[in-house]
């Protein structure tokens, strides 16, 4: 069967295979990153959700037709739009995480400066 042939359901086989392949690759990559400790489970869930969505669309391309009809997009546009929205959501979530981290590092730096001053005072008194 030619990779560019259109299946009975009207989808390019290469798109379906590509989606399935991408989702499997993503799952493997995410799990491996978690295993090695490069990625926290908390954020891994986001990406597993993404690969789950890929898998679902690869297995049931009719979903894309349904979404396309609902929103009035071309079918490829549907894929783009939803991927884009997902990425936006992830980037926003990361901005929140960055904010939390910078708050924490600020507090830590401040406490370090205050402790260091007390330590210097103590050392001076002991001498």
């Amino acid at each position: 069967m030619d990779a560019n042939s259109i299946g009975q359901d009207g989808f390019y086989l290469v798109h379906r295979v590509g989606l399935l392949f991408a989702s499997v690759l993503l799952v493997v990559a995410v799990l491996e990153l978690v295993r090695r400790g490069y990625l926290k489970e908390r954020y891994a869930l986001l990406w597993l959700f993404a690969s789950g969505a890929c898998l679902l669309l690869g297995l049931f391309p009719q979903l894309i037709v349904y979404l396309s009809n609902t929103f009035g997009f071309q079918y490829l546009a549907t894929v783009y739009v939803f991927s884009f929205l997902f990425l936006i959501a992830i980037v926003l979530a990361f901005s929140v995480v960055i904010t939390q981290l910078s708050e924490r590092s600020r507090t830590l730096a401040q406490e370090l400066a205050l402790l260091e001053q007390r330590l210097r005072l103590l050392e001076k008194e002991r001498r």
Binding site: R106, Q110, A113
Partner: peptide, 18 residues
Amino acid sequence: AVLLDLPCNLGIGGAMQT
């Protein structure tokens, strides 16, 4: 003068808050 020595640059806000 007491020295409060921040280990990295926090910007004026973080410094004043210290």
